[in-house]
């Protein structure tokens, strides 16, 4: 009936016992493929939960190596991993958690030359990046390829999440048409992040993936959820499609992928 071994049935029994998931839902998880962009603050909980949940094939793309400053929030990696490529550390941890999961690692930066080929290999994309250029690149590519994207962002004590069905529901540009003005933003290291906030948002992203794959509940389509840890509040904003959206609006002006400058340093006026 289902292509699950005895061991898998036992491993996933707390999923399978949920009437909304059941054996059929677990089978869908096993047959699903998810690309996670970034194995950092958001990527860590996303990868941990998707692996534990039994997603059949998970791709991880990340060009960075583990740094001591990552360990306060990037719970996929340990002290002994410092200096190691994050994809390597991620893969090792994931295989320890669940050997049934196929892990594809890409130790490279996502760019406009490799993104389409990568998207073709996966059902769902999860954004766990730490910069705007890649965030916009992923959004645009997912709209153009009509892929499902679970978008997430964190900073300091705040986070946001929205799910996007490329070309059908509101995309990131429907809300944030363009990145903040270049040359005016603080450096990545200056802004800071409360470690557990990454856990909250990444876990929500993983939850969205599991819901979308199994068909349980209502995905966060056309809605943007903001999290404020300082006040412990969630604020949901209706994020319907924007007719002016430059990539999925009525008259799109972005019809080919664009890559913004990756600089994130403050440039003195």
């Amino acid at each position: 009936m289902f292509n699950l071994t005895e061991e898998e049935i036992e491993r996933y029994s707390r999923h399978i016992i949920l009437p909304e998931v059941g054996g059929a839902g677990q089978q869908k998880l096993k047959e699903a493929s998810v690309l996670v962009v970034g194995a950092g603050g958001l990527g860590s909980p996303v990868l941990l939960y998707l692996t534990a949940a039994g997603i059949g094939r998970i791709g991880v793309i990340e060009d960075d190596v583990v740094d001591l400053t990552n360990l306060q929030r990037q719970v996929l990696h340990t002290t002994s991993d410092v200096g190691k490529p994050k994809v390597e550390s991620a893969s090792e941890t994931m295989k320890q958690i669940n050997p049934h999961v196929q892990v594809d690692v890409y130790h490279e930066r996502l760019n406009k030359d490799n993104i389409f080929a990568l998207l073709d290999r996966y059902d769902i994309v999860v954004d766990g990046v730490d910069n705007f250029p890649t965030r916009y690149l992923i959004n645009d590519a997912c709209v153009m390829k009509k892929k499902i994207l679970v978008e997430g962002g964190i900073l300091r004590f705040m986070g946001l999440i929205m799910s996007i069905k490329g070309g059908e529901t509101a995309c990131y540009r429907c809300v944030y048409e363009e990145p903040p003005p270049p040359g005016t933003v603080p450096s990545c290291a200056e802004a800071g992040i409360l470690g557990a906030v990454a856990g909250v948002l990444g876990t929500l992203q993983a939850t969205e993936v599991l819901k979308i794959v199994t068909g349980v509940g209502e995905p966060l389509y056309n809605r943007l959820l903001q999290f404020d840890a300082e006040e412990l509040r969630f604020h949901e904003v209706n994020a319907r499609r924007n007719p002016r959206c430059p990539v999925c609006g009525e008259k799109p002006t972005i019809t080919e992928l664009v890559e913004y400058d990756h600089s994130c340093e403050i440039q003195a006026p």
Partner: peptide, 20 residues
């Protein structure tokens, strides 16, 4: 009125929280 904060992962300035 809703404020939609840019949260790209590092590239952000936190509001000065004087009041809600």
């Amino acid at each position: 009125i809703d404020f939609l904060y840019f949260m790209g992962g590092g590239l952000f300035v936190q509001p000065d929280r004087r009041r809600n």
